[in-house]
Amino acid sequence: MCNNPLLKDPYQQLDDYIDSIPYKKENLILILHRAQEIFGYLPDKVQWHIAQKLDLPSAKIYGVVSFYSFFTMKPRGKHVANVCMGTACFVRGSEKLQKEVESQLGIKTGQTTEDQLFSLDSVRCIGACGLAPVMTVDGKVHGRLETTADIKQALAKYRPEGTPEEAKGSNSNI
């Protein structure tokens, strides 16, 4: 039908991938990683599909998906922001950073903004402790986020141009 791999039916993509690897049940976690890449998240339907394909009980898949924090069963925003909650960042004020990002995005950690632009989560040390406190957005590290303005600036890069920032408050230290 269509040769563009980007337009290929995602389930077909996933099946092709599963068919291409030697051990299947043993590679469940790898398969889930791939599925999350394809679908963006792992809804019940995708998990069920994998269960059928690998001939595993769905409950087992669900148990695994719900165990690992990397896997998400909810759709994510276009951009995923992760505030580092590692120890080094914590002692350098990541709690305040987290609160400020939450307030600028108007969501709590673990949630996605209504416009589906941002999801906010936390990570534990990304190895950039020298830049603490840090936040990553779509994998890109933003370090030394010490003032509301720093954060505003970091997030602005991901907002479509011309959107008003939801942030309020003064340009103060957080």
Partner: peptide
């Protein structure tokens, strides 16, 4: 071997 249950969450 019905596999109805699994531990879920953490």
């Amino acid at each position: 071997t019905v596999g109805v249950y699994s531990a879920v969450g953490r």
